[in-house]
Amino acid sequence: MVDLYVLLIFMIAGAIIAIEVKDLLSSVVAVGAVGLALSITFLVLKAPDLAITQLVVEILCLIILIRATIRKDLPFSTSGRWLLNSIITLAFIAVFLYVSIEALKDLPPFGYPIMRVAEVYLKEGLLKTGATNLVAAIILDYRAYDTLGEATVIFTGVLGVMTVMRRVGRKRQEETEKGD
């Protein structure tokens, strides 16, 4: 399991670089490195479907983020209540860490999951659905309602982007400015 820890530490280092570098384009590229390491981590943890999906989604994510950072802007300004903001942020993160470490004690140890629901799927999946890829059997047969809701969310996202980016709003605004 050494490779898993190496990949996790690499991801943490990439994340720190991504949030501390001042150039926005370098920061976006560092996020791409974190995403690719996440894809390899999925492969190490025996989830090949997720590895493929994460890889291709990461490429599209990188294209969209680079599209947003074309114009340079100063990323960090130290005006105002710098000390107060830092103290509030660190206190919140400390409370969050305490609660989550207390909660992690109740989880089963790493490598020994409680497979109460998944045992049924793994045992009867091939007979009941006929699909040899059990992840596809679960998302499209046992839990197809999830996929239906996911399709609804993507449709809403596309509608939202189209609404924010539409042309009609700007034309109407220009017409009112001319009228004024």
Partner: peptide, 29 residues
Amino acid sequence: SAGIIPFCNIAISLKVGAGLFSIFIALVI
């Protein structure tokens, strides 16, 4: 094989592919 699962896969891939490409077009235009 596997009954409706291949048809569901085709439908979902049409939906996801068209949706993400239209997001890209909206951001570029």
